[in-house]
Amino acid sequence: MKVEEKEHIMTEPKTIPEINKKALIEARNVNVFYGHFQALKDINISMNKNSVTAFIGPSGCGKSTFLRCFNRMNDYIDGYSIKGEIVIDQKKINWKNVVIEELRKEVGMVFQKPNPFPKTIFENVAYGLKIQGIKDKSFIEERVIKSIKDVALWDEVKDDLKKSALALSGGQQQRLCIARTLAVEPKIVLMDEPTSALDPISTASIEELMFELKQKYTIVIVTHNMQQAARISDKTAFFYMGEIIEYDDTKIIFTNPKQEKTQNYITGRFG
């Protein structure tokens, strides 16, 4: 792929100095540019294993951009460049020799709008496994069923696994997309406003799901819904104009933020 040859990705791994041993994801001095426009400025953050971290902040502040750095989905964007280091599971992921396909097996992503493949429900969930070259039918089937059960969709679709995924409701589709992500057993699940296109009931069921998922996965979620961030996350980062203004326990961010900007944002005084 061309992407790996871009200059912005460092050519050799430097020794990693102080690794926060507990952190699964770490960003150090990350600066991101779209052409001349700087979308992220000096981002430093670390996220622990089996935690839920929420990114909040006004539109255009760089939440999605940052999230997409973790699975390198930004690589496809013209003019994109990144400086600094992103370390996942002790490995720098933004240097040349990283195999993107391997990285993405570890770091799954759920998108804002449900985007099931125009295939059957079963094939949707099995896709990630088949891509890895797994041929064992019973293994695939087991994993598919387990993943669908994990997202609490099983009762609704167990008789329709051969039906097109496009026939599901929006909420069901989004849960299917989560199941599809879980089926390859990533360590990290990135979610970019996963409930913004859904009705309140579907949203509630996905939030509930996230509590369960925390046991096994590390979750990073972008949301515009303050209540949602407060309900589901352990830690919250408040982004503003490409910078992290404040990053702390969710409880503190929502009850006693240290920064005035954070205070203003969560109380809805600007947005």
Partner: peptide
Amino acid sequence: VPSSIKDASVALGASK
């Protein structure tokens, strides 16, 4: 073909 489908595929670790 909408790019969201391609995004979903590569995000699962599929090659180009």
